[in-house]
């Protein structure tokens, strides 16, 4: 059971490999409810791997370490079980599901969540109503939910659709994998506002990004720098500014000098 002091997410010494290549080399990381964390790092540092492993993507192998979510061993759970327990991953590259209508997809997701919680399925009418509200909340084109999931969506539409799904599933732990990449400034603002609106003291957000830009809109409590599979530095919002100004090479040199 979760006590008040149990962190929402607690990662200890996490090592992960894929295709015999070690990607994460011992990550320690703790997230409490009500917090927003930003994980920054250059391409290939392992950011996406970290959040994908938390969501249970099959092609990764955890070679060492533990991940506890609400005090429970997260790594032993199937991906759908993690999702039902409130772990949400906004994909860097959302998949297209040809022919699968977004409406049907979202309803199935909500039904699965509710069944897990022992609640009855939502009626189509109630679901429609809820969907309309959420569509407004994240400011997306209502017609998108009538189309097949992500099929023929623009990059921006796909990213917004991820935020819509997040709004509907109301996760406790939202993992946003480079949700900002490829967005123009207007789309970035809309997506960020959506994320901010969904924030509350009972949930937490982990934001993976390459750029400081999105942090102008979503204020992080903690900023971590991931480099070559390790978190090499943690700090407050000012760390992001410093990174933006000095670049990742600066931190690499600093780490090497100290290390």
């Amino acid at each position: 059971m979760t006590s008040k002091n149990t962190p929402l997410l607690e990662i200890r010494g996490l090592c992960v490999s894929a295709d015999d290549l070690e990607i994460l080399k011992g990550v320690d990381f703790t997230v409490n409810t009500g917090e927003v964390h930003a994980i920054m790092g250059p391409n290939g540092s392992g950011k996406s791997t970290l959040v994908s492993v938390l969501a249970g993507k099959p092609e990764y192998t955890v070679t060492a370490g533990t991940v506890r979510y609400q005090g429970q061993n997260l790594l032993s759970l199937e991906p759908e079980m993690r999702a039902r327990m409130g772990v949400f991953l906004a994909f860097q590259y959302p998949l297209e599901l040809p022919g699968v209508r977004a409406w049907q997809f979202l309803k199935a997701a909500v039904d699965a969540l509710r069944q897990h919680r022992g609640e009855e399925d939502m009626s189509a009418r109630d679901f429609d109503r809820m969907l309309r509200e959420k569509v407004k909340l994240v400011d997306i084109d209502p017609d998108l939910v009538k189309r097949a999931v992500n099929e023929g969506f623009s990059g921006g539409e796909k990213k917004r659709n991820e935020i819509l799904q997040m709004a509907i599933m109301e996760p406790k732990l939202a993992l946003l994998d480079e949700t900002d990449s490829g967005l123009d400034i207007d789309a970035l603002r809309i997506v960020s506002e959506g994320v901010n609106r969904l924030k509350n003291p009972a949930n937490a957000t982990v934001l993976v990004t390459h750029y400081q830009r999105i942090l102008d809109y979503i204020a992080p409590d903690h900023v971590h720098v991931l480099l070559d599979g390790r978190i090499v530095q943690s700090g407050g919002p000012s760390l992001a500014m410093e990174l933006e100004a000095k670049g990742y090479e600066w931190i690499r040199e600093a780490v090497e000098a100290s290390g």
Partner: peptide, 8 residues
């Protein structure tokens, strides 16, 4: 995996 991540 995408569907699973949405609880399906």
């Amino acid at each position: 995996f995408y569907c699973q991540q949405r609880g399906i």
